Amino acid sequence: MQILRYLNNINILFLLGVFLGLGLIFYEILTFNASNISLGKRKAVAIVNDTIISEDQFLKYVTNLGASFEIDDDTEILDLLLERMIEEELLVQRGIELDLHRKDIGVRKEMIKQVIDFIIQVENKTPSEEQIRQFYNINQGKYIPTQNIYFDAIYIKSKNQESVLLGTSSDQKTLDQKFIKIFKEIETTNFAKAKDIYDENEFYQIPKELTNIKNCYQYFGKQICNDLSEMELGSVSEPIFFDKGYFIFILYDIEKAIIDNDFFNRVKERVVFDYNNQIDDDKLKDYLEYLKVNSDIKRYSFQ
């Protein structure tokens, strides 16, 4: 009898163990299904501390990595990629907890760059031909190649290099007699002969041929060179004060670019690039203005 009772107890314990095991398995199945149902409802592949990693995010992530896969055949690769995405999300969350976006300049710069990239990519449309033409017409000077000019100059030093009146009409008047002689020599012979006689230039090596106007800028600045390029061929300028003295210029030749439809087609790619950059800049400015208007900002004076 005792043996039978002992065997019955064993059977009862065994059955209890079986039922308990089945219960745990059933619970795991229910939990797994509930988890999958939750993920499915949210169209998520994972949820990390209440942050959803959506199917779209996952597909973009895989695509950006350049991975090529078949869903049925490459589940192991997909699991590895999902695990990596979860780890990255955990690191991002930890970075936010540590306030790295506030404390670390590198993190802030990268975040700002990404936000700017996102803003300018929204509604990024291909510009029309009319828009490109209009932009080109407004900014034509930016695309016209610099002209070539051939010029020469005679330099006369001011009499008093340290005078406070240097460059004034009083200063120029002290050289009037010399200027009269120079212009008379130019009129009776030529500019080159007058230069041989009167030029006091010891520093400026002016090319004796057509040269890019940018070379002129380096010597005399934009204002003088642009005025020089507007002179008639063969004409001589009045004395122009520069570098403690006066220059008299002559324009021998000028070579300007032909601006026509063929020229536009040659620079069109540059124009489109610049147009898109300006549109992007305008988008960013408008968005920043929107953020400022809709934010509570307090500015404190540095004074």
Rank of each mutant, 00 (worst) to 15 (best):
L4R: 15
Y6P: 00
Y6S: 15
L7N: 05
N9C: 06
I10P: 02
I12T: 12
L15S: 08
L16F: 14
G17A: 08
V18D: 08
L20E: 03
L22N: 11
I25W: 11
I25N: 07
I29E: 13
T31I: 09
T31G: 01
N33M: 11
A34D: 13
N36K: 13
I37K: 15
R42W: 06
R42G: 11
K43M: 06
A44L: 02
A46M: 09
V48T: 07
N49Y: 06
D50F: 05
D50L: 07
I52F: 05
D56F: 09
D56I: 05
F58V: 02
L59K: 15
V62R: 03
N64T: 11
A67E: 15
A67H: 01
F69Y: 15
F69A: 12
E70V: 08
I71T: 06
I71M: 05
E76T: 14
L81P: 00
L82G: 07
L82R: 15
R84D: 15
R84S: 11
I86W: 04
E87S: 13
L90M: 14
L91V: 13
L91S: 06
Q93K: 12
R94I: 06
R94L: 12
I96G: 00
L98Y: 03
D104L: 05
D104H: 08
D104K: 10
I105R: 05
G106A: 04
V107Y: 09
R108A: 10
E110F: 02
I112Y: 08
Q114R: 15
V115R: 04
D117H: 08
I119S: 03
K125L: 12
T126D: 14
S128V: 07
E129R: 03
I132W: 10
I132M: 07
I132C: 07
Q134H: 12
Q134L: 15
N137A: 13
I138G: 00
G141C: 04
K142C: 03
Y143I: 02
I144F: 05
P145R: 11
T146M: 12
N148Y: 15
N148W: 08
Y155R: 07
N160T: 10
Q161D: 07
E162D: 14
S163N: 07
L165F: 06
L166E: 02
D171E: 07
D171G: 09
Q172V: 01
L175F: 01
F179C: 05
I182F: 02
K184Q: 11
E185I: 00
A192Y: 13
A192I: 08
K193L: 09
Y198W: 06
N201L: 06
F203I: 10
Q205L: 12
I206L: 03
N212E: 06
F220D: 00
I224K: 05
D227L: 04
L233T: 09
K244V: 01
I248A: 07
I250C: 05
K256F: 00
I258R: 03
N261Q: 09
F263H: 13
F264N: 14
N265C: 00
R266W: 01
V267K: 05
R270E: 13
V272C: 09
D274F: 02
N277C: 00
N277V: 00
I279Y: 11
D281T: 09
D282V: 13
D286Q: 10
E289F: 04
S295V: 10
I297G: 13
S301M: 02
F302K: 14
Q303V: 05
